[in-house]
Amino acid sequence: MKLAIAGKGGSGKTSISGTMARLLARGGQNVLAIDGDSNPNLALTLGIPAERMSAMPVLPPDLLRRTTEGAELTQSLDQIKASHSVSGPDGVQLLVMALPQHANTGCLCHMHATVRSIIDAVSEDGNDVCILDTEASPEHLSRGTAIYADAMLAIVEPYFKSLETGRRMAALANDLGLERVALVANKIRDERELEAVQAFAERHELELGGTVPFDAGFPGAEHAGLAPLDFAPDAPAIKAIDEIAHRWAGNGNGRA
């Protein structure tokens, strides 16, 4: 299963991506996490300490070659993982797309294309999972980065800007031809907030793919610079994410 996670900045994309990746890996699946955000923070929510982040490998530009038939990877997926990934807790492997260090570093389109081909190369075996954490912009959709994902979850908070951003991203993903696109309601404090998201989803004919309650453990983890799963393993939000992860990307057995 190849799952893209999208949403407005601050909606909880990266926390949910990192937590899902770990929980699926704990359940015995092979998990490749791809940080497709040019402001890469997925390592933190996977539980890789901030100190290690400055030495994090970033995908080099020469992994993709243009041919007359289009673009192709210059290395196999296994080679790419062996030379450019970082291993995180629970055996999750992480690839980081880019980290702009200077002004005018050049367009990131090539790196988006590289990630697109890497997602395409992930096998469709039920035991293999790819989680793509995306930029807080529609870049990954307008550039087609997520085109080979099987599904996209747009993480939304129960207020207008966040819902509207999720809706626009969902529309773009539908147009890109993704088979399944859904909203996931995050940071839900009460029944009224859930109803607001449900009503919005219904009005725009969008599937609600899951609900994650507000959980003080998550901001706590961000303050501490730890993965939510390590900071508050028994938090209700973790349980909700576990359920969503297995429903959307589980292999049908081996629940964590």
Binding site: G10, D37, N39, N104, E135, E222, G225
Partner: peptide, 24 residues
């Protein structure tokens, strides 16, 4: 969000950046 527009020179008029940062 993020450093991308800064990297691609989308605020050439700016003489001062107002950095909004949460303690996370």
């Amino acid at each position: 969000a993020g450093p991308r527009q800064t990297a691609f020179d989308w605020a050439p008029y700016a003489e001062r950046y107002v950095l909004v940062v949460e303690p996370t």
